[in-house]
Amino acid sequence: MDMDWLKGLIKLVEESGVDALDIELVGSELGDPTRVRIRKSPRVTAAAGVAAPSAGSVPGPQATAPPAPSAASDAAPSEMLFEVLSPMVGTFYRATAVGADPFVSVGDRVEAGQTLCILEAMKLMNELQSDVAGIVREISAENADPVEFGELLFRIEPD
């Protein structure tokens, strides 16, 4: 087996969102079938950024944009919201099963490391955990929605 070819495959998997790669070559140089299986289990953490200052209450879970600032509102820097972005392409689930209570809802207090949702990618269920403690102010995806890499999922007002 060509080790440079194999190293190239490993590098390709490391740089991509692929979790497994199966290759079967029949009729290799030695006449024997060759099978290569490379698997990478992603470490899921919340990708984060800081949003524009909040201008009072944030709309419910269906909202996808921050509220427009009002003329009477003077948002302090401490009112910045922490954005939780999708670290992968997948399907967003708010609970472990249909009919089960959601992991979090708007207004809930969360701790750093607490599970916010599940992202299903390639039949793997990945728990997405909060990087900050605070209050959930917005949930931007609906249950069972497909989500893209970098898509806004939650806004959390940090402690």
Rank of each mutant, 00 (worst) to 15 (best):
S130L: 11
E127C: 02
S86K: 02
N126K: 08
P146N: 12
G150K: 08
D74N: 06
V98S: 14
L119M: 06
S73G: 07
T91K: 10
R94E: 01
V136I: 10
P87H: 08
T96K: 14
L119D: 03
Q129L: 13
A141C: 14
L152Q: 09
V110Y: 15
S70Y: 04
C117H: 05
S140L: 05
F103D: 05
P87F: 03
F103N: 05
E127L: 14
D108V: 02
S70N: 08
L116H: 04
R109Q: 13
L128I: 03
V84D: 07
L85H: 15
V132T: 11
V110C: 15
V106N: 08
E127I: 00
S130T: 04
S78A: 10
R109V: 09
L81N: 06
E83I: 07
D101F: 02
F92V: 02
D108N: 06
S78D: 05
P102E: 00
S78L: 05
E151W: 06
Q114K: 11
E111R: 15
L124N: 10
E79N: 07
G134K: 01
F92C: 07
M122A: 14
A121K: 07
E151M: 06
P102Y: 03
E142C: 01
I118N: 10
N143I: 03
G90C: 14
D108G: 04
M88F: 15
G150V: 02
A71H: 10
Q114G: 11
V147K: 05
V147F: 02
A121I: 00
M125G: 04
A75Q: 07
M80R: 12
A121L: 03
F82C: 02
L85E: 13
S73T: 04
A112R: 14
E138W: 03
A97Y: 07
S86P: 03
D101L: 08
E127H: 13
M80L: 12
L85I: 06
V136D: 06
M88Q: 12
A72P: 01
E120T: 00
S78Q: 03
E138F: 00
V132P: 02
I135V: 11
G107F: 04
E83F: 01
E127G: 10
V106T: 10
E120C: 00
P69C: 05
S86Q: 02
E79A: 12
V110F: 15
V84W: 12
G113H: 06
Q129G: 00
L152K: 13
V132Q: 04
I139R: 10
L152H: 09
L124E: 13
L116C: 11
Q114C: 11
M80Y: 07
E148V: 05
I118M: 14
I139K: 12
L128E: 03
D131W: 02
T96A: 15
G150F: 11
S73D: 13
E111M: 13
A68D: 11
A68S: 13
G150A: 10
S86E: 01
C117P: 12
A71G: 05
R94N: 02
T91R: 15
A72V: 04
S73K: 08
L85M: 15
E148P: 05
E79F: 05
D145H: 11
G150S: 10
V136R: 09
I118D: 09
F149R: 09
G134R: 01
V147M: 01
E127Q: 14
